[in-house]
């Protein structure tokens, strides 16, 4: 029986379909091909992630991606113990912010390790079946 006190509602749209942008699309295509890339600004020469069609530093148009050596450095990390509902996870997950030498920005991703360390060097473990998603990298693992 509904109480007179309130009107219940679920506020959500059923589905969002987000565009990746022209440069973001190329970046995802490279991931699908098993290559890690960064956007390159033609004016200041910076390489940056996440990739976008403009340089956030000087507003120049960006069209080009450069392949990046897929070895990153763990800048910081956390260990996830519980799921969204507060239930303990069967397997703890290490989530890290990974930077790549010479690249502004970086990636947040899982790192498969029992012994996470600041500054540890990691590389992507690619999935065999890739779809052009950041999860084409299943996780990073210690070099």
């Amino acid at each position: 029986m509904r109480r007179i006190k309130h009107f219940p509602e679920v506020m959500e749209i059923e589905a969002y379909i987000y565009t990746a942008g022209p440069v973001g699309t190329k970046w995802l295509e490279a991931l699908r091909a098993g290559r890690l890339t960064a956007a390159r600004c033609p004016k200041c020469g910076r390489l940056f992630m996440p990739p976008k069609m403009f340089c956030p530093y000087d507003f120049e148009e960006v069209k080009e991606l450069r392949e990046v050596e897929p070895v990153g450095v763990v800048e910081t990390y956390t260990v996830v113990e519980r799921d969204f509902y507060g239930e303990p996870l069967r397997e703890r997950k290490v989530l890290a912010f990974i930077k790549f030498p010479g690249v502004e920005g970086g990636l947040i991703h899982y790192v498969k390790t029992d012994n996470p360390q600041m500054g540890m060097r990691v590389r992507p473990r690619w999935r065999a079946e890739r779809r052009g998603l950041v999860t084409d990298i299943e996780y990073f693992e210690e070099v």
Partner: peptide, 19 residues
């Protein structure tokens, strides 16, 4: 009705042109 550019990129296109 649907542009490939992300919202940030759309903002940049217009901002850059105005500048």
């Amino acid at each position: 009705s649907r542009m490939l550019e992300t919202p940030q990129e759309l903002a940049w296109l217009a901002a850059k042109q105005a500048l």
